[in-house]
């Protein structure tokens, strides 16, 4: 199904098309990776709603990205239970091995590192979400293993920059 049809299917669930902006943004983000201005305008046009309504939501909710993110978005929970179970150490470790600070993306575009609020999986603290998956009961060894696995799963691109190169710091 194309983006337009997916959005129409979502819109049919509500008596008011404005309600479909959130699902439409999720669909658009899935299709485009992030939500630049022209995509927001396309969503507004498909739904036939005010563009400002779409902008308002795209900038209010943290799961919407108006800027590009890396191929793997490492979202480490640093809320209370994860903090109590060592999330800070994991953050420091990932910053060192990836050569980036939180909120930044590696130069090869592979990893974006973020901290997030409670993921609702505190029984397996510390937890990190990457894409659709939760990785729990993490320690430094498991984080290293996970990063290796993710790197290995990424398709090789010829123009790839050295993996250790720090990003210019956005």
């Amino acid at each position: 199904m194309g983006m337009r049809e997916q959005i129409e299917t979502a819109a049919a669930r509500y008596p008011d098309r404005r309600s479909a902006i959130m699902p439409a943004l999720l669909i658009a983000q899935q299709a485009h990776g992030h939500l630049p201005g022209p995509v927001l305008e396309e969503v507004a046009d498909i739904l036939g709603v005010e563009r400002i309504w779409v902008y308002e939501l795209a900038t209010f909710y943290t799961l919407f990205h108006t800027e590009p993110v890396g191929r793997f978005h490492l979202q480490l929970c640093d809320n209370l239970s994860c903090m109590l179970c060592g999330a800070e150490r994991l953050l420091a470790h990932m910053e060192t091995v990836l050569g980036i600070g939180k909120g930044e993306t590696t130069a090869d575009g592979l990893f974006t590192l973020s901290t997030v609020e409670c993921l609702g999986a505190c029984e397996m603290a510390p937890v990190m979400q990457v894409g659709d998956h939760y990785h729990g009961n993490l320690n430094i060894a498991r984080v290293d293993e996970l990063l290796d696995r993710l790197r290995a799963s990424a398709p090789r691109v010829e123009t790839i920059a050295p993996a250790a190169a720090p990003s210019p710091g956005e």
């Binding site: 309600s19 959130m22 939501l57 209010f60 943290t62």
Partner: peptide
């Protein structure tokens, strides 16, 4: 209806705003 990462959407009237396609 999938939320998009805002704790305040758990407050019931903010949730209704969000369901109506508004900032929560």
């Amino acid at each position: 209806h999938c939320g998009a990462g805002a704790y305040i959407c758990g407050e019931e009237t903010a949730m209704l705003e969000s369901l109506e396609g508004k900032r929560a």
